[in-house]
């Protein structure tokens, strides 16, 4: 579904990704770990099409299309979703309006009709219930004044609503209490299906206790320096990243 080949990216002439390779198949869950500043968020943003990153080499294919050729919204409409590490506030824009507009844009791209108001309300209430989000937050402005955990929950709500084919979660588990972590994990587990793939960027084994990944990768210095199964995450938890850096250098 997603093939990343020798991806090289820089910001302001400064190389950030230096030959990243990754292959994600349908239904797979990949965890990406790695030290601060290693390029995880940059990678996620490049996949989503955020401006400001210059691709200097390599390619990314998503379902046999050149992903890098598509605009941000085209990628979203083709089923790519990025839950942000720092969700953005939209003062004045009601969360409900935002969710409805997004859902209808994605539905239109899939050739489905827009939902009428009543159906939409029902769907959104159901999903909000699933992620344990208080109805009050639906009426407020998007993320404005939301607590860190509430913002992350709102990202998971969008994920549940938009039903993407490839979801990238950038540290959605960071800064969450245990209950919220369960919500995120359950959100992923409920949506896990043979057609849908996930890339989970995380620093913590805890998330992976709930969501069992098929693969774990370590990103360091802008490249994937090691890949393994879930046991790699456990090893990282025990030993940190130093030994990999040492091996990679060797």
């Amino acid at each position: 579904m997603l093939t990343v080949k020798d991806l090289r990216v820089s910001v302001d002439e400064q190389p950030i990704l230096n030959g990243l390779n990754l292959e994600v198949g349908e239904g797979e869950v990949h965890a990406i770990m790695g030290p601060n500043g290693s390029g995880k968020s940059s990678f996620a943003h490049v996949l989503a099409g955020r401006e400001g990153y210059t691709v200097t080499g390599g390619e990314v294919r998503f379902d046999d299309q050149d992903l890098l050729d598509l605009s941000v919204e085209e990628r979203a409409r083709k089923g790519l979703f990025l839950a942000l590490q720092y969700p953005v506030e939209l003062p004045g824009v009601s969360n409900l309006v935002f969710l409805r507009e997004s859902l209808n844009a994605i539905r239109a791209a899939r050739g489905e009709p827009a939902l009428d108001a009543a159906t939409f309300m029902k769907v959104v209430r159901d999903k909000a219930g699933q992620v344990n989000m208080s109805p009050e937050l639906l009426k407020r402005s998007v993320n404005a004044g939301f607590s860190g955990g509430e913002k992350k929950r709102n990202e998971i709500l969008q994920l549940a609503l938009l039903e993407p084919r490839l979801a990238i979660l950038d540290e959605t588990d960071s800064g969450l209490d245990i209950d919220a972590l369960r919500v995120v994990a359950d959100g992923v587990n409920v949506l896990r299906s043979p057609q849908r793939a996930f890339i989970l960027v995380t620093h913590y084994q805890r998330l992976l206790d709930y969501v069992e990944p098929d693969y774990v990768h370590v990103l360091s210095g802008g490249r994937i320096v090691r890949s393994g199964d879930k046991s790699l995450a456990l090893e990282l938890e025990r030993r940190g990243y130093g030994w990999i850096a040492g091996e990679a250098a060797a």
Partner: peptide, 22 residues
């Protein structure tokens, strides 16, 4: 803000209009 809206499938125009209407 524009990136956020677009990454949810909205065109830039629709994003601006939604923010302005809000």
């Amino acid at each position: 803000q524009l990136f956020y809206c677009r990454s949810r499938g909205l065109s830039e125009e629709d994003a601006v209009s939604m923010i302005v209407n809000g």
